Amino acid sequence: MANCSAASAASSTGPLFQTLTGLQHLAQTPRFKAWFLDQFGVLHDGKQPYPGAISTLEKLATTGAKMVIISNSSRRASATIKRMTSLGFDPSLFAGAITSGELTHQYLQRRDDAWFAALGRSCIHMTWSDRGAISLEGLGLQVVENVEEADFILAHGTEALGLPSGAVRPMNLEGLEKILEHCATKRIPMVVANPDFVTVEARALSIMPGTLAAKYEKLGGEVKWMGKPDKIIYESAMGMVSVDASDSIAVGDSLHHDIKGANAAGIQSAFITGGIHATELGLDTFGEVADLSSVQALASKYDAYPTFVLPSFTW
Rank of each mutant, 00 (worst) to 15 (best):
Y234D: 00
S242K: 13
A204L: 10
M226I: 14
V243R: 10
G175K: 02
A214S: 10
P195C: 09
R203S: 08
A250K: 10
V241Q: 15
P164H: 07
I188T: 06
T185V: 11
M190P: 07
S242A: 12
G239M: 04
G261R: 00
I232G: 00
S246H: 12
G227S: 05
M190R: 10
P209L: 08
G166V: 05
M171Q: 10
R203K: 09
G239H: 08
M190D: 09
L176I: 13
V191H: 02
A213R: 03
V223E: 08
K178W: 12
D196C: 06
P189K: 06
D196Y: 04
E222L: 15
E181K: 11
M238F: 03
D253N: 09
R203N: 09
T211G: 08
V191T: 04
F197N: 11
E181N: 10
V251A: 14
V251K: 05
V200I: 11
Y216E: 12
Y234G: 00
S242T: 08
K186L: 10
P195M: 05
V200K: 04
G166Y: 03
I249V: 15
V192Q: 06
C183W: 12
E201R: 13
G252N: 02
L173Q: 15
E201V: 11
G261K: 00
G210F: 05
D196L: 04
E235Q: 13
D230W: 00
G227M: 02
R169W: 13
I179Q: 11
K228S: 02
S248M: 08
S242W: 01
A167F: 01
Y216S: 12
A250G: 07
E181P: 02
E222V: 15
G227E: 00
I179H: 08
P209G: 07
V168R: 00
K231E: 02
V192R: 01
T199V: 14
I249W: 00
I259A: 03
A193S: 15
A245S: 13
G227L: 04
L219T: 09
G220E: 15
L255P: 07
T199G: 11
D253L: 05
S242E: 11
N263A: 01
M171N: 10
H257L: 12
G261D: 00
K215S: 10
H257P: 01
E201C: 03
P189D: 06
N172E: 09
A204Q: 07
E217T: 13
